[in-house]
Simulated scan of single mutants.
Amino acid sequence: MIERINKHQDELAKLIERHVPGDGVHTTAIPSLFFMRHSKVTGPSYGVYKPCFCIVVQGAKEVCLAQERFKYSPADYLVASVDLPVIAQVTEASSDVPYLGFKLKFTPSQILEVLTDSQVRALPKESAKRAMFVSHMESSLLDAVIRFARLLDNPEDIPVLAPLFTKEILYKVLQGQHGVALEQIAIEGSSTYRIRDVIEHIMNNFDRSFRLEELAEIARMSVSSLHRHFKEVTGMSPIQFQKQLRLQQARRLLLSESTDAADVAFRVGYESPSQFSREYSRMFGLPPIEDVRRLRAQNDQTINA
Rank of each mutant, 00 (worst) to 15 (best):
M137T: 12
A128I: 04
I169K: 08
V82G: 05
N6M: 00
P21I: 04
Y270Q: 03
R252H: 14
K71E: 15
E68W: 00
L254R: 10
H201T: 01
V90E: 09
V48W: 04
H26P: 06
L161Y: 11
L142F: 02
R293Y: 14
V134G: 03
N204S: 15
Q58G: 00
A66E: 09
G179P: 04
Y72R: 04
K172E: 14
N154G: 09
V25M: 11
H38G: 08
Y46W: 10
L253N: 14
G24A: 05
D23C: 08
S140K: 06
I187G: 08
V97T: 14
S281L: 02
T27K: 15
E232Q: 08
P31M: 09
G269K: 00
V292R: 09
Q298N: 06
E213L: 06
P288V: 02
Y280F: 15
P108Q: 12
R246Y: 03
L151D: 09
R196T: 13
L141S: 12
I158Y: 03
K14L: 07
A265W: 01
E126Q: 15
F35I: 04
A186F: 01
Y72T: 03
R296Y: 04
E126H: 15
H201W: 08
A305S: 13
I146K: 09
K172M: 13
V233Q: 11
S94C: 08
A261R: 00
E200M: 14
A216Y: 07
E62M: 10
F230K: 03
E232A: 13
S109H: 15
H8N: 08
P74V: 00
L212V: 02
I185R: 13
E92G: 11
V48Q: 00
F70D: 01
S39L: 02
F284G: 03
I218A: 04
S94W: 06
M1C: 05
Q242N: 10
S209I: 01
L286T: 06
R194K: 12
A297P: 02
E214I: 06
C54Q: 10
F276H: 01
S39V: 09
K50V: 06
S94F: 11
P44V: 05
E271N: 05
S135Y: 09
D263Y: 06
R147C: 10
L100N: 02
L161S: 06
I55Q: 13
E279A: 13
L247F: 11
V20N: 09
R37A: 04
E68P: 00
A66T: 05
V82F: 08
A261H: 00
Q244K: 07
P273T: 06
R150S: 12
S191W: 05
F241C: 09
S277M: 02
L247V: 05
P108W: 11
E279S: 11
F276Q: 02
I187Q: 14
A88P: 04
V264T: 02
H227I: 15
T27L: 13
A297V: 13
N299T: 10
S256Q: 15
G235Y: 01
R267H: 03
L254M: 14
F266Y: 07
S256L: 15
L84T: 07
V198D: 02
R252S: 13
